Simulated assay, not measured.
Amino acid sequence: MAKLALGHLREAAEPGCARAVLAEAVLTFLFVFSGVASAMAAGKLGGGADTIMGLTAVASAHAMAVAVMVSAGLHVSGGHINPAVTLGLAAGGHITLFRSALYLLGSSLACLLLSFLSGSGAGAPPIPVHALAAGVGAAQGLLWEATLTFSLLFAVYATVVDPARTVGNLGPLLVGLVVGANALAGGPFSGASMNPARSFGPALVTGEWAGHWVYWVGPMIGGLLAGLVYDGVFMVRPGHQQLPTDDAEF
């Protein structure tokens, strides 16, 4: 605990910390704006995200937005755009939690702007809020979100963080593809948030908080477990020697 606290203070004193925090706020704003707007558009055009076409459109929009925003912020702040990602990386000692301070502000501003831009009246599309599907209980929703977020963080570690990765600069694109795949898989059941900030903005603007805790606890558990598992079991440390492949050398 003391080590983590010192990490917070050390990061807060870094000259680039303010820039990193601001970058995360901007990136989260842009990601949530695109993601929520895609769900609003699916509803306005008919069917919404509860149809296969609507779900595919929303999942694709989230995948592309994540890939681009992670790429845009990777060199400035890490491009987390997700408190669960920050927590998962903190579990492995790769970052502290300090720079996640403005995720919720970026998400809230994006949804407030969308609420204004969508107009008012009977034809205005509502801001969609993450909610569990009919027949899906809180425990099931929690496991959905934890599992999907575990998948996301495992991909972040394997394709972006691990120094032994073999995918080059494709990490952000691959992370975006995982988000899209998870949205297709879990969207009809839990909404496949995988991101507390993504769920917070719509809930704040609409005032609909029913079951909102699921979209904090589930992703945080999944992100934390993924960070601990990958960093503790799979991470290749500097100086690691691969086992020889030639029988004679072995």
Rank of each mutant, 00 (worst) to 15 (best):
Gly88Phe: 03
Ala39Leu: 04
Val32Phe: 04
Leu225Ala: 15
Gly137Pro: 05
Ser100Met: 14
Ala67Tyr: 02
Leu148Ser: 00
Ser34His: 11
Gly232Phe: 13
Ala183Met: 02
Pro196Leu: 12
Gly93Met: 11
Gly47Phe: 15
Pro244Lys: 08
Gly119Asn: 05
Leu184Phe: 03
Glu14Thr: 07
Pro163Lys: 09
Leu4Asp: 03
Val36Trp: 13
Met40Leu: 04
Asp162Cys: 13
Ser34Gln: 13
Gly73Leu: 06
Leu228Val: 11
Ala155Asp: 07
Ile221Asp: 09
Trp213Cys: 03
Pro126Cys: 07
Val58Arg: 07
Gln242Lys: 01
Ala131Asn: 07
His130Gly: 01
Leu74Pro: 00
Gly106Lys: 05
Leu243Lys: 07
Pro238Asn: 10
Ser38Asn: 03
Met69His: 04
Phe31Trp: 12
Ser60Tyr: 14
Leu225Glu: 02
Ala133Lys: 07
Asp231Leu: 02
Gly135Ser: 05
Met194Cys: 03
Ser60Phe: 15
Phe200Lys: 00
Lys44Leu: 10
Gly180Ala: 13
Glu11Met: 07
His62Met: 14
Gly43Ile: 06
Ala134Pro: 04
Ala133Glu: 02
Asn182Asp: 01
Tyr157Leu: 09
Gly201Asn: 04
Asn182Thr: 11
Ser120Gln: 07
Leu132Arg: 00
Leu55Asp: 04
Val214Ala: 04
Glu249Met: 09
Ala12Ser: 03
Gly121Thr: 06
Ser118Tyr: 08
Leu177Arg: 09
